[in-house]
């Protein structure tokens, strides 16, 4: 190819090579949509489990004597942890699946250097957040779980935006904002969590799909 006659095309080619070699661009919008749907289902499951606990608590509050509040709340706690773990794994698998399909279509190897960098830079803030949230749970600060998840996940996305499609940064800003807001509207964690992990993911997914995959 003679670059002297198509300077614009050559420049675009250079930009494409730079992006393709330093960013993972096969992240699919469908991944966002599916992760969001998983999060909404998980939030609904947690919501109904909490509802059952509240009914139980109200019915047995005046029993006195044999009512075992400690056991009931321990069971609730374990169930909620299970719901969270299953939701996280389901979201991760569905997100991975659609991105895998897209990267196969683009002919990009799924585990190249850009993916390694993306994975590391996303997982680091998330892992740190996980440790913080774990300690908060141990100290009984349950209200901090939802804002903690949102804030650390948001930071992870902003960090990840340097290694994949840059728009993911705005999803990160959204999560951070919701998380901070949640710190002051402290008892509505589940709603904030559903808005951040559910609704924002779906909106982001649709926008990205519309922009790049349609």
């Amino acid at each position: 190819m003679d670059s002297q006659h198509q300077p614009l095309e050559t420049l675009q080619d250079i930009k494409r090579m730079m992006e393709r070699s330093s960013r993972f661009i096969s992240l699919s919008g469908w991944s966002g949509i599916c992760a969001g749907v998983c999060a909404l289902i998980g939030a609904w499951a947690a919501y109904s489990r909490l509802g059952r606990f509240n009914v139980y608590y109200r019915e047995h509050r005046h029993d006195g004597g044999l009512y075992n509040a400690g056991q009931a709340s321990t069971e609730l706690f374990i169930d909620l942890i299970w719901i969270a773990v299953i939701t996280f794994i389901a979201a991760l698998i569905s997100a991975f699946l659609f991105t895998y399909i897209r990267s196969r279509k683009n002919g990009v190897p799924i585990w190249d250097r850009t993916v390694q960098r993306l994975t590391w830079n996303t997982l680091l803030p998330m892992a740190v957040g996980g440790i913080v949230i774990w300690r908060a749970l141990e100290f009984g600060y349950y209200e901090l779980v939802a804002p903690g998840c949102l804030i650390f996940y948001g930071l992870a996305l902003v960090n990840a935006s340097k290694y994949t499609l840059g728009e993911i940064r705005y999803l990160g800003y959204g999560q951070i904002m919701l998380g901070i807001l949640n710190l002051w509207i402290i008892n509505e964690g589940l709603y904030f969590w559903a808005a951040g992990f559910g609704v924002l993911h779906i909106v982001y997914g649709i926008v990205m799909w519309y922009k790049y995959e349609r």
Binding site: D2, S3, I14, M18, S21, R113
Partner: peptide
């Protein structure tokens, strides 16, 4: 840099510190 391949290699190396032959 007339060659597309040489230009491509340079573009990749501009934004990546070290790249293997296979990559």
């Amino acid at each position: 840099f007339d060659s597309r391949i040489r230009l491509g290699v340079m573009s990749i190396l501009m934004v990546n510190e070290e790249v293997s032959f296979n990559d």
